[in-house]
Structure formats: structure tokens, C-alpha cells
Design a protein around this nucleic acid. Structure first.
Lengths: 349, 349
DNA sequence: AGAGTTTGCTAAATCGTTTTATTAGTTACA
DNA sequence: TGTAACTAATAAAACGATTTAGCAAACTCT
């Protein structure tokens, strides 16, 4: 097979300096006052022989790699997978490739990954940041890299954010449950001081307080193994299921774990317990009856993230300002038959 | 902020040639007979100042990028997202990064993407190949790039494959439905000549033929827009639902579309129609009653794919042979109450 | 003591680009 | 007519590593 052509080969074939070829190929012909006739001749030849520049060499010289680093919690999580997909499309259409990785919310792993990305001369970063990563992100920003954070905000980092209104989302969902007559509403989530999770819990508590209801909170440790997540929830449900008529799940991951336990324990939705989960799964609407959920605006999130980043990449100097974009969620109410909740009926009698 | 250190800076600081530094850093000190004392001094210094080599320069010189290109149909599809996640972990642990993309099963797009990957000097390829991509893949192989294909095989390409036994999977699932007493079993899938899909259909037909049953096949065009997929299925179901007592869905994507239509049309599973879907969604088991599914061994698929590729990458010359790995699926039977199928009851009376 | 071998290290070429500085010729202008 | 300005192109340095080829000193051997 033929060796790949280099710019030198082109230059030699045409008896022109490689500098000239480079200028023409980079669209700087006018600026560099290169004759129109020569420009045409070079472009024609380049097209004929199918020359493609070596991006490694280009990157080495220019310091730009045209690669965006995307760090999510877990690419297998549908929320992140869908966002990744949308970001990918926009990135490719703008000449950028994506290198992705899953952080598992593990701070040490994330630090390593950021370092790897820097080693690889990634041009810009899109990160769903785990806790404790402030310093590394600040260092990226100080070094001049465009960084867009999403899904969660972290304190003391002056970066662009795209997040949803977590506080209002759970407040609103809880209010909805209350308006349906539920009085013993539990909140189950991961134990974490990540802003988006504390906000979600706060929204829930705020709504309850307005109605003088007592919060019932169960927090479990994050783990990649679902069984380990489910164990404490199982214990909790077994002990408390008599006292609870509704549950708000703090994340889609824990929501699915919870639903699995419902199945195992024979808890019926919404007859025994009404449910709202954060993050809407495509399949939630297929359940009978369907599960209500707080839907994050995935398309808008992805769109705002990649638009913000591309802007920064294209105007590296002008736009030093950072902005926080807060998108609203949608409460998809699906438990059509809320009134069939037996406990509720009892309460209403 | 400090400029990044280069190997020259190290060399100058230590009054040693950069050649020596390079040899030491690449573990070739012994081979190159470099004094133990100097080796130690260099390593200590490098560690102290935190020098990190520039991978672009390294790649430019060596021709290796330590990047693997991963091309799936759609990263938002849980089957591919999960595989991607497993591959990612193994790749990172072996010093490789992943650049991914979604092909949408679009041949032209895939050609472009392969070219992009070549431009980026990707070391190896993992591809779920769309139809009509034979030439490009053969060209990759001829150029010496390790290529592992998965999820589907294509004709006339002498590459490594990791696939599942599609023929037996649907044969087995269909047999199961027959053994449960179903006689009017439909098969709904995408219209495609991709091997994995034709095999799945064939397995279905083979099982029916053994029992002298007539196949009822509905094939629809692939589209990224679910509504366009659902339209012809809706028409089909409306026309035929009276004649059908079971349906086998050919892919998870179409299976979810089908279930959504069931909901819309008020078709109950399994009372009205029994269902088996290819690909097991984590959430299928949460349905009431749960949906039966043909589960692909995701962990094994990912494991075999990445192991095969890493082997090729590490032994670029020795292992010119290719192998086809065929993994078996598991039929997860979940429709506990198959006997409650009304039509079936009628038939059994 | 001279030839050969081993040890310990390095200069320079190379990968394929971009970019800076420069040249040589032509035109404009006072 | 002499100089400034413009045109059209190029040579060479730079990016930061790896690798080839080779050199000088020390050691071994007859």
C-alpha cells in the first residue's frame, strides 16, 4: 500500500515550496498574496492525489487538537448516554471529535482522567463534575482551557454551567403529591453533598414544610453494584412501608433500584405507594400504570453545553465571562389512577 | 502559569543529552547500557518536576496514538452504551483512550468517520458495521490496522468478529412460544439485509416450519424518529391484532416502539399478546408482568471484543489470523402468567 | 602494546506540519 | 532617479518526542 503523502511530496511534485502549499491549504492565500493561478493548480493537484494533512503534526505545531474531552458519571446511564449522543453530533458537525470517559463520581479517578486529557492536548472540556474536583478544574481554567460543567455545580469554580432547577423540580413534584392527598411522602436518594442532590432534597423539604408535613428521608451510599444500593432500601421499605404513601426518588438510578424492590416486595404503584422519580426514562411511560417522573430537558442541556463550549473555542480571548444556564424541568404526571391508592382512599374517607 | 516542561528542559537541567533521557524514560536504559546511577538521578528529577511527555510529539514520531476508535450504531442505545462502558474501562486500564461515534447505520456517514479516524491515527478499530462498508474495512485491514467487528458480521471481510448466535436465539425463543401453545406468532423487525437481522428472522422461520406454522412478518424501515417507525407497526397491529397471539421483536429499539403501541392501542401483555424482545432491557423485568427477552451477554461481548483488539495491538505481527467468536444468548422468560392469555385459553379449551 | 570489545553516552536526523523572517523582483511616487 | 511599497514566493526554525549511527574511554586479551 502507498505511503501517505505529506505536504513535502506535494511541494516537490509541483516544484513549489511547502510553505506556499501550507498557506494555500489553510486558506491564507489571499492574505499571503499568492497568485490565483498557483492556488488553483495546487488545490487541483491536492484534490487529485487525495492528500490529507497529518493532524498529529498539525496539532504538535499549533497546540490545537480539535478534540473535546467529555466526562460523565457513567456513559451507560441513559441520561448521560443521550446527552453524549446529542453533544457528539454537534461536535462532529463543527470539526471536533469526542474522547469520553466515565468518572463513576470517583474524585481520584477523575483527577487522573483530567490529567490524561491534558496530556492528550484536549482543546476543551465538558464535565459532570464529582465532588472535590474544584482545584483541578480551576487549574484547567487558569491554564486557559474552555470548560463547561453540567448536571451539577460545584462551589468556588468560576466556570460555565448548564444545570436544571433542581430545587424547584422536587419542590414542585412534592407539591403535586401533596395536592393529590398524600401526606407521608418519603425521599430516597444517594448520600452526597453534591449540589444537585442537596438541592433536590431541599426542594422536597421546602414543600413539606409549607404543609406542615414531616420529611421521611433515606439516603444510601453510591455504588456501582445495584445489589449494594438495594440492600439498605429494602430494609428501609420493609420497616416503613406501612407509614409511607408516596416516594420521591432523587435520581433515575436509584429510582430503577426502588422499582425493582417494589416488584420484589410486592408493592404496587400507585395502589400501595405513589411514585415520582427524578429523570424520565423513555420506558417509564410503558409501565402499567406509568411512572411519573421529573424530566430533564436533555436536548436543551446538550445544546446549551456544546454551544457554550464551541463559542469559547472559537473566541478564546473575547469571551472571558462565564454564565450559568438554569433550565427548567417538566413534571410528567402519569399515575393516572392516583385515586386508587388504597391508603389514600382510607385517608380521604 | 509555567510552560510545560519538555524533554530538552530535563536534559539541560541535568546536563545530559535528551537521547539519554528518552532512553531512560522508555525503559531502555539496560538495553542501552546507561549507568544505574544516572538512571536513578534522571528518574528522581523527572518525578520531582512532574514532567509528562507530549503524546502528540510521541505519536508523530512513533506512529502510535494509543487511541482506539469505537463505532457503534447509537451510543444512546442501552445495548451499545453498556458495551461502550465496559470497553472503555478495559481500554483505559491498558493505556488506551477511546474516541467514539454513532454511525446511525448510515454507510456514508460511517465512511466519513472511518476516514476521520484514520486522519487521527487511531491505533485500532472496534466497529458495529453497517451494510456496504466492506471496502473501507478491508482497506483498514490491508493497511495493517487491527479491526474487531461486533454485533453483526458482514460478508467478504476477513476480520475478527464477536457476535451472538442470532439464528439459534430466535429459533429458541420461537420454540418457547410454540411450546406455550401460541400458534400465531408474528415477527416484527427492521427491514435490512444485515446478517444479524436476517439470521434472527431465519431462526424464527425455522422454528415455525418445524411445527407447520405460518410466519407472520412485518418489517419496517429504520429511522431515528420513533414516530416514523411506529406508524407502519400501528397499521399492522390494527389490521392483524385479532389474528396474532404472540410477537417476537427483532431488536430492542423496535421492541420498545412496539410496547409503546401496545399501550396506545390498549393491547395487554400477555393477556392479549405474548411478547419476546431481542435484547434485554434492565427495565423489562420491572414491567407487570415482566417482558420476556433474549438477553445478549453484554459483559462477554465487550470482554471478547477488547481482549481480541488488545492482543492484536500488542502483537501486531505474530497474530495475523482472525477468529470469529460466537456467544450464546439467554432467553429470559418472564411472562409468568402466560396461561392467562385469553386467546390461548380459548385455543386450549 | 596493539587490536578488539564493551561501556556509557550523545549528535543529528526524523516525523509532518505551521510560522517567522527574508529575498528578489516589480510598481509607485516625489 | 532613488527609495519606498507592494507582490509572490521561499528557507529555515520550531513543535517535542524517538531512533540511528557513532564516538571516546575503559577494559580484555594475546
Amino acid at each position: 500500500m502507498k505511503k501517505k503523502l505529506s505536504i513535502v511530496d506535494i511541494a516537490n511534485s509541483l516544484n513549489v515550496s511547502k510553505t506556499t502549499i501550507s498557506f494555500i491549504l489553510n486558506g491564507r492565500a489571499k492574505e499571503k498574496r499568492i497568485g490565483a493561478e498557483l492556488v488553483e493548480r495546487v488545490l487541483k493537484f491536492v484534490d487529485e492525489v487525495g492528500y490529507k494533512p497529518n493532524h498529529l503534526a498539525k496539532s504538535l505545531r499549533t497546540g490545537k487538537s480539535n478534540i473535546i474531552g467529555l466526562m460523565v458519571e457513567d456513559i451507560a446511564n441513559p441520561f448521560f448516554a443521550n446527552i453524549a449522543r446529542l453533544i457528539e453530533d454537534r461536535a462532529y458537525n463543527n470539526g471536533y471529535k469526542i474522547i469520553y470517559c466515565s468518572t463513576d463520581n470517583n474524585t481520584e479517578k477523575t483527577k487522573d482522567l483530567i490529567e490524561m486529557y491534558r496530556d492528550r492536548h484536549v482543546d476543551g472540556y465538558i464535565i459532570a463534575p464529582p465532588e472535590g474536583i474544584e482545584d483541578e478544574i480551576n487549574s484547567l481554567i487558569k491554564a486557559g482551557f474552555p470548560v463547561v460543567l453540567f448536571d451539577r455545580n460545584i462551589e468556588n469554580v468560576n466556570a460555565d454551567y448548564v444545570i436544571v432547577d433542581n430545587l424547584f423540580s422536587t419542590y414542585n413534584a412534592t407539591k403535586h403529591l401533596i395536592s393529590q392527598g398524600y401526606k407521608n411522602i418519603a425521599y430516597i436518594s444517594f448520600l452526597s453533598s453534591q449540589a444537585q442532590l442537596t438541592q433536590r432534597m431541599q426542594g422536597y423539604k421546602n414543600a413539606l414544610k409549607e404543609h406542615n408535613l414531616k420529611p421521611i428521608v433515606k439516603e444510601v451510599l453510591f455504588n456501582h453494584n445495584n445489589d449494594i444500593i438495594m440492600d439498605p432500601i429494602r430494609t428501609f421499605l420493609n420497616k416503613r412501608k406501612g407509614d409511607i404513601d408516596a416516594i420521591l426518588f432523587g435520581t433515575n438510578h436509584i429510582g430503577v433500584c426502588g422499582l425493582r424492590l417494589f416488584k420484589e416486595l410486592g408493592i404496587k404503584v400507585p395502589e400501595d405507594i405513589a411514585v415520582v422519580s427524578f429523570d424520565d426514562y423513555e420506558v417509564f411511560q410503558l409501565f402499567t400504570p406509568p411512572i411519573s417522573a421529573i424530566a430533564q430537558p436533555i436536548v436543551q442541556i446538550a445544546d446549551n453545553v456544546i454551544t457554550t463550549l464551541l463559542n469559547k473555542l472559537n473566541l478564546p480571548f473575547k469571551d472571558k465571562s462565564v454564565k450559568t444556564i438554569i433550565l427548567s424541568t417538566e413534571l410528567n404526571i402519569r399515575s393516572s389512577s392516583a385515586s386508587t391508592n388504597k391508603k389514600l382512599k382510607k385517608l380521604l374517607v
